[in-house]
Amino acid sequence: MKLAPYLLALSLTASAAAAAEPPGFESRLDGLADSWAHVNYEVRDTAARATEAERLAGQAEALARQYPNRAEPLVWEAIAQATEAGAKGGLGGLALAKSARGLLQKAEKINPAALGDGSVYTTLGSLYAQVPGFPIGFGDPAKARTYLSKALAANPGGIDPNYFQGDFLLRQGDAAGAVKVLDRALAAPPRPGREVADRGRRAEATALLAKARQKLKS
């Protein structure tokens, strides 16, 4: 089978990039993903979760300093900070959410497709959806909708983009729309190596779907 010229160029570029990949870089990213899943879904104590999320953010920051031209460590640092923000709440949590937004905006400029699953857009959208709006915070439903739509365009069958779109729609009072995308989230294919994250997100999607369906009945 012959490759079209542009596909051949893309293939060669990808091969060159893979050859130039820093030794252990991908395994360290996998380690960040595994650690986050443990912190977010298996650490039950809120204070302990905040502490572990802060430690994880520090590890991601160190990797980002080592590889300043890579977006992936910035995304994981932002995700860890957002998790810490959720655990802490209050003004401290808001400051962390702002920091996470800044990291994601930086990552977006480097490579908006980092991690290959729409994570940059998903996380930005979820922050704009969940953080309080002006004058307290930077929450903005219009920006949330834009980023979450980009996330779905990048990864239409993914569990995370559909879950956060469902969460957003339910917050906006669109229970029917939420049910549709949450059903899609629960139908998402498993992610190899992400079993803990998948199990935790499916549990969240199941609970949110029940809430959306209850809204439709009321």
Rank of each mutant, 00 (worst) to 15 (best):
E77C: 03
A144W: 01
R213I: 01
S35F: 11
P132E: 11
V75Q: 00
D160F: 10
A153V: 14
Q214I: 00
A142F: 04
K106G: 03
A33G: 11
A151G: 08
D174K: 12
E61T: 00
D183V: 07
I110K: 14
I110W: 08
P68Y: 10
G89P: 07
A113P: 03
S27N: 07
E21I: 01
E204R: 15
T123Q: 14
G24R: 13
D140Y: 07
F25M: 04
A178R: 04
L124Q: 09
E21N: 04
R202K: 12
P192A: 15
R44D: 09
P189V: 12
S35D: 15
L152Y: 05
L209H: 12
P22D: 09
A62R: 09
K88C: 00
R28I: 09
Y163M: 11
G125W: 10
D183R: 15
F134H: 09
G193F: 10
L208Y: 05
Q172V: 06
L209T: 11
A4L: 12
S27T: 14
A176H: 08
E195V: 13
E52G: 01
A18L: 06
P192M: 08
W36I: 02
A207W: 07
P189K: 15
S149H: 06
A205V: 07
D34A: 15
K211A: 09
A129V: 01
Y163L: 15
G102T: 05
V75W: 00
Y121L: 00
K150A: 00
N155A: 14
A153I: 10
G93K: 12
L91Y: 08
R145P: 01
A142N: 11
V196G: 05
G31V: 08
K2R: 14
D167G: 07
E77P: 02
G133M: 11
E72C: 01
A60M: 05
S218I: 02
W36V: 02
A207H: 05
F164C: 00
Q165N: 08
F164L: 04
L74S: 00
Q66V: 00
M1L: 14
Y6F: 13
L94A: 13
A100N: 01
D140F: 08
T206F: 09
E52V: 00
P135W: 13
R70E: 07
L94T: 14
Y67K: 08
A60H: 06
Y41S: 12
K215D: 13
D183F: 07
D30K: 14
G86S: 10
G24M: 09
P22Y: 09
T46W: 08
L96W: 07
A50T: 01
D140S: 07
G166M: 10
E42S: 14
R70D: 01
A48P: 02
R184T: 11
R213L: 02
P141M: 03
L208I: 03
G24F: 04
G118N: 06
R184L: 03
G139Q: 11
A187Y: 05
R44A: 13
D140Q: 06
R202P: 02
K217V: 10
L7A: 14
R199V: 07
T123A: 13
G118Y: 03
F25V: 06
K2P: 15
Y163G: 08
P189C: 12
S218F: 02
D117L: 03
Y41D: 11
A107Q: 05
P112H: 03
L216F: 12
T146Q: 14
A9L: 05
A71G: 04
V43P: 05
H38A: 14
F168W: 00
A80S: 14
R191K: 13
K150W: 00
R28S: 11
G116W: 05
A82T: 02
